[in-house]
């Protein structure tokens, strides 16, 4: 267990020292929301209506943007190979890295959502629901992302391909995440999102570890 924590700690430490990558991601997240009114007009009721969807799109894009760093650095300096001999199985290594990645990418976005709520004139209730939906959905997004990052780890052009692979697979998360805020949907969407997020988060370390093993061969 201490090895698991040590790996999360190292990834967080590296992220902080590498010059605020998390901040850049937050900046991108906010910027996506900022350009939307320029594209569709500053009509407040319309913005309010579209806000949850806009926040989800911004979160989606930001998460995809940060994907490439998940395994690439560790692959390039050999850490990934050496981690194969660690006291932890590779699946646990992947899980630790996914948790660290969620803390570095998804959590800052959640903290930045009040800014978006203000810009897009969301109500507090709407904001609360959006944060709850993102809280449930982002672990699944990061987990799909880990899979995409793992299958493209040895590729120089992987940075572009991983998002293209992951996006269609993540559509259900988007659907139920935004659906949670639909008054017609009821609690069904919330339950589906929770179930989906649990299954994807539990399953993806195994698939990603398998992909990493194959990539190392």
């Amino acid at each position: 267990m201490s090895a698991f924590r040590a790996l999360i700690g190292r990834d967080l430490k590296l992220a902080f020292r590498a010059g605020g990558e998390a901040l850049t991601l937050v900046l991108f997240f906010v910027m996506v929301a900022v350009i939307v009114p320029f594209a569709i007009g500053p009509d407040r009721p319309q913005l309010t209506r579209l806000a949850p969807g806009i926040v989800w799109i911004a979160a989606f894009l930001s998460m995809l943007l940060g994907l490439d760093r998940l395994f690439r650095n560790d692959d390039e300096d050999g850490s990934l190979t050496l981690l194969r001999h660690a006291g932890l199985p590779l699946e646990a290594v992947v899980a630790a890295k996914v948790i660290a990645h969620w803390l570095m990418t998804a959590l800052p976005l959640l903290l930045a959502t009040p800014v978006l709520a203000l810009l897009l004139s969301m109500s507090w209730a709407q904001w609360g629901q959006t944060v709850l939906a993102l809280l449930i959905g982002t672990p699944a997004l990061v987990s799909f992302g880990a899979l995409g990052a793992a299958v493209t780890v040895g590729l120089r052009r992987g940075g572009l391909i991983a998002p293209v692979l992951i996006l269609p697979l993540s559509i259900p998360i988007m659907i139920f995440g935004v659906g949670m805020m639909d008054p017609l949907a009821g609690s069904g969407a919330t339950l589906f999102l929770i179930a989906l997020s649990l299954v994807v988060t539990a399953f993806s370390p195994f698939a990603a570890a398998l992909a990493l093993r194959v990539a190392g061969e």
Binding site: G78, T81, L82
Partner: peptide, 16 residues
């Protein structure tokens, strides 16, 4: 878990 591998990739981080 009984072996060490040492090759040209050191697995060391420059920022640590």
């Amino acid at each position: 878990t009984e072996l060490h591998l040492l090759n040209y990739q050191s697995g060391l981080k420059g920022r640590l």
